[in-house]
Amino acid sequence: MASERREHLVRLAAELFAQKGFQATTVRNIADEAGILSGSLYHHFDSKESIVDEILSGFFDEIMASYRAAIDRGQGPRETIAALVRAAFDTLEPHRAAITVMQNDWSYLRGMERFAYLTKAEDEIEEMWAGTIRQGQRQGLFRADIDATLTYRMVRDTIWMAVRWYRPGSGLDPKTLAEHYLKVMFDGINIH
């Protein structure tokens, strides 16, 4: 029961952080949403930072595992990029709040020593993507006149921004979004 209660509190807090921002959300807001006294929240967490840490570390653990699996399959660069895109879109539903927190509060959180792992993970992720793009350039599969790091950042940001408008149950699912995205990314919108 305690672990279920803790998970419930994390989900509530994640939604509040996504709606109001991490800095603007108070412990009292979280407790009020949960229907408990503020002091009761400290039975489960020592601070608001501990809650957001649990939200973000869970997200990063999952996305890193998915990205590493895509890289480790040893497919060609195009297939690997497609697998990375699919993995990113797969996080939209289960980690919508974490992605929103990352977008809204990244600058604030990464300034705290406790969240140093965010920068480390972001650097590793960037190297996975940009390294795959560079590999595709060396093999003549991707345009040589694009910057791999800038391209990765543009792709990442367009995927993560989908969290702002994508709604589960709206007739679109993450797999459909990923396939459409890949079609536009690889083939463009021009008729060849």
Rank of each mutant, 00 (worst) to 15 (best):
residue 27 V to L: 11
residue 38 S to F: 01
residue 78 R to A: 13
residue 81 I to P: 01
residue 20 K to N: 12
residue 127 E to G: 05
residue 99 I to Q: 12
residue 22 F to N: 02
residue 127 E to A: 15
residue 66 S to A: 15
residue 62 E to G: 06
residue 92 L to T: 11
residue 81 I to A: 01
residue 77 P to Q: 04
residue 88 A to F: 01
residue 54 E to C: 04
residue 31 A to S: 13
residue 126 E to C: 14
residue 28 R to N: 08
residue 42 Y to G: 02
residue 27 V to P: 00
residue 108 Y to I: 04
residue 78 R to L: 13
residue 58 G to W: 03
residue 44 H to N: 14
residue 71 I to H: 07
residue 69 A to H: 07
residue 125 I to A: 10
residue 56 L to F: 01
residue 66 S to V: 00
residue 66 S to E: 12
residue 24 A to H: 08
residue 65 A to F: 00
residue 102 M to K: 08
residue 42 Y to D: 02
residue 102 M to F: 07
residue 109 L to K: 09
residue 84 L to M: 13
residue 73 R to A: 09
residue 108 Y to G: 06
residue 99 I to S: 07
residue 118 L to M: 15
residue 129 W to N: 12
residue 74 G to Q: 06
residue 120 K to P: 02
residue 20 K to Q: 09
residue 128 M to C: 13
residue 28 R to W: 04
residue 96 R to G: 12
residue 89 F to I: 04
residue 53 D to G: 11
residue 122 E to A: 13
residue 56 L to P: 11
residue 122 E to G: 07
residue 57 S to M: 05
residue 29 N to W: 04
residue 72 D to A: 09
residue 69 A to V: 03
residue 58 G to V: 01
residue 54 E to A: 13
residue 101 V to K: 05
residue 42 Y to N: 04
residue 120 K to F: 09
residue 59 F to E: 03
residue 91 T to P: 03
residue 80 T to S: 00
residue 113 E to S: 12
residue 106 W to V: 00
residue 60 F to C: 05
residue 23 Q to H: 06
residue 103 Q to F: 05
residue 27 V to M: 12
residue 103 Q to R: 15
residue 18 A to M: 01
residue 129 W to P: 07
residue 125 I to M: 12
residue 44 H to Y: 15
residue 70 A to F: 06
residue 113 E to K: 14
residue 99 I to A: 08
residue 111 G to N: 13
residue 121 A to T: 14
residue 64 M to P: 02
residue 68 R to F: 03
residue 68 R to K: 09
residue 83 A to S: 15
residue 55 I to S: 08
residue 65 A to W: 00
residue 104 N to W: 01
residue 42 Y to C: 03
residue 20 K to I: 00
residue 79 E to W: 00
residue 35 G to S: 10
residue 52 V to P: 11
residue 32 D to Q: 15
residue 48 K to W: 07
residue 122 E to T: 14
residue 72 D to Q: 10
residue 37 L to W: 05
residue 94 P to C: 12
residue 50 S to I: 00
residue 45 F to G: 02
residue 113 E to W: 11
residue 54 E to Q: 12
residue 109 L to F: 11
residue 35 G to P: 09
residue 50 S to Y: 06
residue 97 A to R: 06
residue 45 F to P: 05
residue 19 Q to G: 03
residue 106 W to M: 12
